[in-house]
Simulated assay, not measured.
Amino acid sequence: MTTIDNSFIINHSCLRVKDPKVSIPFYENNFGMKCIRRLHFDGFSLYLLGFETEANKDKSWGAREGVLELCHNHGSEDDDSFKVNNGNGTENRGFGHICVSVDNIQVCEANLLANGAKFQKKLSDGRQKDIAFVLDPDGYWVELVEHQRNKTEAKTDLSTYKFNHTMIRVKDAKKSLDFYKNKFGMKLLSTFDFPDARFTLFFLGYDHANNHEENSIDKKVRHFQESLLELTYNYGTEEDTDFHYHNGNSTDNGAIQGYGHIGVSCKDPATFCKQLEDKYGDELDWSVQWGKGSLTPNLAFIRDPDGYSVEIIPLDIFSDDSKL
């Protein structure tokens, strides 16, 4: 069986971007993220953004929660035809959004508007007045929710912001929950069912407390957490054999890429991957097995039931300066 120790975290989420010189300032200026590492390879670069907190200051990027990985294919900034799939169109839907939790959502929204940001949904739009969706430079949706910690009237403090979660749509909730809970050891923190609208939201993450109770985390607590995974299940999709979501990476039938993956890091990923292979064998869909990566042998990629990729890395991956 697999061993899930307290080193396991959801470390990062990866998005492809057209121009890092535009995307990085968007996340730094509007949300207070900092570019903590730059990794340059032949043909592409990775920019790792995160929040510089007291808890993070001595950690390598792979040991942190709440990291946003921006993947830039060299030259795309000069290609007028380049665009990404944000996952929310009428075709090739799949990935939904990332979410930033803030102290004062009204002031955050006002600052974004003053900075020229475009919105998919403002607080005043629709029935839900406590969430908003701003668009980043590539058109990815960034959900805004409020954690209310140390909230001050008419002010917002970027140092309180959290990279709260990443949302993906899933075809079969039972299969997806089995994958993330039983194979990766994540805990089901909260479930929200909307029968009238025919969908359910599942929030998962790592909670290493021995006394964790499933579905015990309320919204106020959840909004102050980092690196959660939200699964959105629309009723009945599992019954349609021809139905599938786009995983963000496929180019089949002319599909455009966008979302890349989430990354899980832990102290001993080699042993974890071996345990997965020993227990589940051919049930698993590896795109890169441990020890066989072209960039480094110290990572693996596995696909979930919908084909979304999960990267598995050590806490200290690329912790030296060789790829700065």
Rank of each mutant, 00 (worst) to 15 (best):
R149S: 10
S23M: 01
E277R: 00
G205E: 03
R38N: 15
C71L: 15
F51V: 03
D282M: 09
R37L: 11
C35R: 08
S159R: 15
I105F: 10
T191G: 11
G293Q: 00
K59I: 06
G205D: 05
G293T: 02
K21V: 01
G254N: 03
D58G: 13
G116D: 09
R127L: 15
K274F: 12
V310Q: 05
R38H: 15
K57Y: 11
V84L: 05
K279F: 05
A132T: 04
D268A: 15
N215E: 07
A173E: 13
N247Y: 00
L229M: 08
E109F: 02
S190W: 13
S159K: 15
S101W: 02
K267S: 14
D240S: 04
D306Y: 12
E230H: 00
S227A: 11
N249D: 07
A154Y: 12
G263D: 12
S309F: 06
I10V: 10
D196M: 12
V67S: 07
F243V: 08
Y206A: 06
E238P: 03
C273G: 02
T156L: 13
L295A: 14
K274C: 13
K129R: 14
I4P: 11
T160M: 09
G205S: 05
I313H: 09
K162Q: 08
D218Y: 10
D79V: 08
D58Q: 14
N253F: 00
Q275G: 04
V142S: 02
I105W: 07
I313A: 08
V107M: 12
K18E: 08
K174N: 12
I262R: 02
E28K: 00
P20V: 09
L231K: 02
L144M: 02
F301M: 06
K162T: 09
E109I: 03
V142D: 04
L48Q: 03
R222V: 06
S81P: 15
D178N: 13
P269F: 10
R149L: 07
D252N: 00
D130A: 07
E213C: 03
I105T: 08
P25H: 13
Y161N: 09
N210L: 11
K187G: 14
M186G: 00
L189C: 11
K162H: 03
A255Q: 03
E213N: 04
E226M: 14
H212E: 02
C273I: 07
L324N: 13
Q257S: 14
S190K: 15
T3L: 14
M167N: 13
R38C: 15
N182I: 04
